[in-house]
Computed example of a mutant assay.
Amino acid sequence: MSGPNDNFDPKRVAALDPDVVNGFVEAALAAVRGASTSAELKQVRIDHVGERAPLALANREIGALPPAARKEAGARVGKARGQVSQAVAARQEELAAAELAQALVDERIDMTLPVELGPQGAVHPITALIDEMCDVFVALGWEVAEGPELEAEWYNFDALNLGPDHPARGEQDTLWVEPPSAGKLLRTQTSPVQIRALLERDVPLYVVSPGKVFRADEYDATHLPVFHQLEGLVVDKGISMADLRGTLDHFAKAMFGDVTTRMRPHYFPFTEPSAEVDLQCFVCHGESVGNPERPCRTCRSEGWIEWGGCGIVNPRVLAACGIDTDVYSGFAFGMGVDRTVMFRNNAPDLRDFVEGDIRFSRSLLGGAR
């Protein structure tokens, strides 16, 4: 029968000596107390609590002791490691609280100080003008109506008395959506919104419809394939051209100040009689007409600027929407929003409106009429 195994290397287990263990603890506690930041304490944890720490290495040597000595050594090393871990945790709480308090002082913002906020953007001039235009009519008691930009052929053409052979239906004017049999297109005007309003709302009807429209136009200084319109529609009893003229005069003065308007006979399939609305040039006031010494670039020395179209709603349009034309009549008008912005601000090139330069938007928003 073999005896107990007392054969071990004293040098190998020297790290388990009580005095050595106490030295490890004192060194660790001193390092913990000396850590003044969380970053420094993190390094202390690595050096004195991590896997390569002296106490961790000493713990690995317990198995080299005789069985009778292992329990006491294990308890001694375990107590030492726990003491160091607790000291690290306590110091971490102290440092975290101190650093938070310091951060609150360093990052404190005096809310009473004046501050100048740099603008991050600007409302687009077209958006701003659409809102202003709508406000003019909302103040008159009108409603704002909107509709889809992808429109059905019937709403965009047929209901507006534009027959199947009308030139506007050609691809040189209209952007059709595949397949052709679907009868879908990108609306060429906001007039389809008026048709939808007639079908969905009761009369009397007073609506204004702003929105984006699409044409197969060239992209140049005076034309865009995508632009904006604002159209108005009134259907009520006893509506006449006088009501239309009064409304447009009020609208023109709201947009341009004290300006004179005129109507020229014209033709539109959806109104009868129809007219073009002109504004007296608000730059030269007509003084450039026949005066080569004082030419006007705004009206090209013609004295008048074309603004939009208007007229009494064609009875066929009302009948297509189920309106009794013996009882009700109405008027309609439409203006280009983009050109109105140009008129008000003397902007020379429509392409500037789609370039996305915020400096351009800010310059127009701050400009005079």
Rank of each mutant, 00 (worst) to 15 (best):
M342V: 01
M255G: 00
N156L: 05
R316K: 15
Q280F: 04
Q102T: 04
R33M: 05
R339E: 02
A80C: 07
A73I: 08
D131I: 00
D173S: 14
F24P: 09
V234I: 01
S191D: 02
F343P: 00
V207F: 03
C284T: 08
H166I: 15
G183V: 04
M133P: 00
L57N: 06
V13T: 15
Q92L: 10
L318W: 14
G211Q: 03
N345D: 00
R201T: 02
R12N: 12
P125R: 02
R300Q: 15
A332Y: 00
F331R: 03
P204E: 02
A31V: 11
N7P: 02
L57H: 03
K184C: 03
F24L: 08
D106H: 00
A145P: 04
V203K: 03
V123A: 11
F270K: 07
A128Y: 06
P179E: 11
E93K: 12
I46H: 12
Y206L: 02
A80H: 04
M335E: 03
E132T: 06
E149T: 10
P192M: 01
C310S: 15
G309A: 09
R169Q: 15
L244V: 03
C284M: 07
R201S: 07
D173F: 13
A97Q: 12
R362N: 02
A182G: 12
A58K: 04
P179Q: 11
E293L: 14
A101P: 10
I62H: 11
E94M: 07
A145R: 05
T37C: 06
I358H: 04
D17A: 14
P179V: 05
A216L: 01
A128H: 10
L55C: 06
V341Q: 02
Q120M: 12
F331Y: 14
A98T: 10
A159W: 15
L104P: 04
V115R: 10
Q43N: 12
A242Q: 06
G147C: 06
C321S: 14
A347D: 06
E51C: 07
P66E: 12
E231G: 01
K71W: 08
V138H: 09
T190P: 04
P167R: 13
R362C: 01
Q194K: 02
V327K: 12
T298E: 14
R81V: 09
L162P: 11
